[in-house]
Amino acid sequence: MEVRTIKVFTTVDNINLHTQVVDMSMTYGQQFGPTYLDGADVTKIKPHNSHEGKTFYVLPNDDTLRVEAFEYYHTTDPSFLGRYMSALNHTKKWKYPQVNGLTSIKWADNNCYLATALLTLQQIELKFNPPALQDAYYRARAGEAANFCALILAYCNKTVGELGDVRETMSYLFQHANLDSCKRVLNVVCKTCGQQQTTLKGVEAVMYMGTLSYEQFKKGVQIPCTCGKQATKYLVQQESPFVMMSAPPAQYELKHGTFTCASEYTGNYQCGHYKHITSKETLYCIDGALLTKSSEYKGPITDVFYKENSYTTTIK
């Protein structure tokens, strides 16, 4: 009895394709271990004539594949690729409408935090270190965002349907971005203890939790000093293409032309909904596939993004 075979390709990165001759009487799992086709788990399936010449994702289970996976995804987590594939199996079914010149995501599976993050990423200057993220990001900007969303979920250790947080998501993504040249110098002034300067680099240099107003941050924000008295913390120097200011959701007025974009969060910790506000020729609110415009805006804002380049204080 002759062994019926077909020729397929296996890959971990969709760049390096490895030619395989597979036995049609055995499952993919018996031949390769966990195997995925377009995100779908085909591990328990036997090869079919229609699979001839198709590319299958496999887990990096030998040295060659491990090197290829690390170079593309910059992670050695053995569960990463499987999590990416199972997320992709959902995100490829989502709709990605162009809204006001940006790629958004039609609401499904509690994905409003991903839509808000995706919209924000198209408006701030950011370059990702893992080629996987950078490639998928370019495709997302062009309207094909399924891979990018699935990668975000995998890097953030999230599953489809789980509630997510924009600030946490951005923080994970910033860790995989090139923020080497970003720098922030802060000064804390206390009447009792004097003053202390701190220099922050990388992710810490672009994120701040405690106030939404970048102007206020430049002037000074009140913080408790270690001595128990009130101290003032203010920005001395900022070198970065953008800054992200966050605070627990509270009524906040966004003035046209003073910011790049913002995240609105309605609801409580267990259950809520994100919308995205962007400042173009007027203010726009993007909620999944829905767009509304207004000249002014007041609502429960939790993150505001500002364009920056270089700032030095005039406070002496």
Rank of each mutant, 00 (worst) to 15 (best):
H176Q: 11
Q237K: 11
D38L: 12
Y84L: 06
K93P: 10
T55E: 08
G210N: 02
E281R: 03
T116V: 15
N129E: 09
A250N: 09
A247Y: 05
M26L: 13
Q134R: 13
K255P: 08
T314M: 12
V203C: 09
T266H: 03
V304F: 02
P131R: 05
T292M: 07
D41L: 09
T55G: 09
D62H: 06
K255G: 03
G267N: 07
T43R: 13
M24V: 13
K229D: 15
A87N: 11
Q237M: 13
D13R: 07
K280N: 10
G29E: 12
N49W: 15
G257P: 01
G82W: 07
N309Q: 12
V160E: 02
A289D: 15
Y284P: 01
L163S: 10
E144V: 04
C285Q: 00
P249N: 06
Y28I: 05
V42A: 11
A108V: 07
V243S: 02
T75D: 12
Y28S: 11
G164F: 01
K158H: 01
Y96S: 06
R184D: 00
D38Q: 11
T199M: 07
S171T: 14
S181A: 15
L290M: 15
T198R: 11
I286N: 00
T103K: 06
I315N: 15
Q222W: 02
M244Y: 04
L254A: 07
A115P: 04
S50T: 14
Y28V: 02
T64G: 14
N89S: 14
P300Y: 15
L118P: 06
A108M: 05
H176P: 07
R66P: 05
L65H: 02
Q230R: 11
V22L: 11
L133A: 03
D23V: 14
K255E: 14
G257T: 05
K191P: 15
T198N: 09
L151Y: 06
A145L: 05
Y311W: 07
C182T: 07
Y73K: 00
L290R: 12
T11E: 07
M244L: 07
R184N: 05
T76G: 10
A247D: 03
T198V: 14
W94F: 12
K233C: 14
Y72N: 10
D287G: 01
R167H: 02
Q196T: 14
L163P: 11
A177Y: 04
N110L: 13
Y113S: 09
C261H: 04
L212F: 00
G202F: 03
I301S: 04
Y284E: 01
G161S: 03
T5I: 12
F9Q: 13
D165N: 01
K7R: 13
P34S: 10
L173T: 06
F174A: 03
L200V: 13
P130W: 05
E215S: 07
N178G: 08
M209Q: 14
G267T: 04
Y214T: 02
V160F: 07
A115H: 04
V221G: 00
M207H: 02
T302Q: 08
P300Q: 14
A40E: 13
A136Q: 07
R66A: 13
E68R: 08
L65K: 13
Q222L: 12
G272S: 02
R66T: 12
Y73R: 07
K93A: 10
F80C: 04
A250V: 14
K183P: 02
P241A: 09
T169M: 10
P97E: 15
T192G: 09
T76R: 10
Q195I: 15
Y73D: 05
S294D: 02
L59Q: 09
V166A: 11
G39Q: 08
A205S: 07
E125Y: 07
I286M: 07
L119K: 08
C112K: 03
L151P: 03
D63R: 06
P300A: 06
D180C: 10
S279H: 01
S181Y: 11
K106Y: 10
L200Q: 13
L102K: 05
N147K: 11
G194H: 03
I301H: 00
H90Q: 11
C156Y: 01
C271Y: 12
W107E: 03
Y84K: 08
N61A: 12
Q230F: 14
T312W: 04
Y208I: 03
N309E: 15
E2I: 11
G272L: 08
K201N: 11
H90E: 05
N157R: 09
D165T: 03
I6H: 06
Y234M: 07
S86D: 14
T5E: 14
G257W: 00
N61I: 12
K93V: 07
S25R: 11
D180F: 05
R139V: 05
A289W: 06
L283N: 06
A69H: 15
H256Q: 13
K95W: 13
L163Y: 11
L88I: 04
S310G: 03
D135H: 10
E215D: 15
